[in-house]
């Protein structure tokens, strides 16, 4: 919670639109179990967080990302 104020990583890289096909980029915004990380953990800005969430959900549907990872 008490993390340092971070600048949005995607803004830093000037990524305008998050692509749902880029699962390597998206995998940074999920936990090791595959849950979407909250903004307080990643420091994403509001617009990019919305894009990330949508993109991750699309990527999950396309089996690019798991819904749950390592579930036994």
């Amino acid at each position: 919670m008490a993390m340092l104020k971070k600048v949005c990583k995607l803004c830093e890289r000037s990524i305008r639109q998050v692509n749902y096909k880029d699962e390597h980029l998206l995998s940074r915004f999920v936990t090791d179990r595959g849950k979407i990380l909250p903004r307080r953990a990643t420091g994403s800005c509001a617009r990019h967080q919305r894009q990330i969430a949508t993109a991750i959900k699309r990527a999950r549907y396309l089996a690019l990302l798991p819904y749950i990872r390592d579930y036994q």
Binding site: E12, R13, R28, T31, T42
Partner: peptide
Amino acid sequence: DGGGEPEAEVK
């Protein structure tokens, strides 16, 4: 930034 920082954050 792309190299070291993000990995440390996620893991």
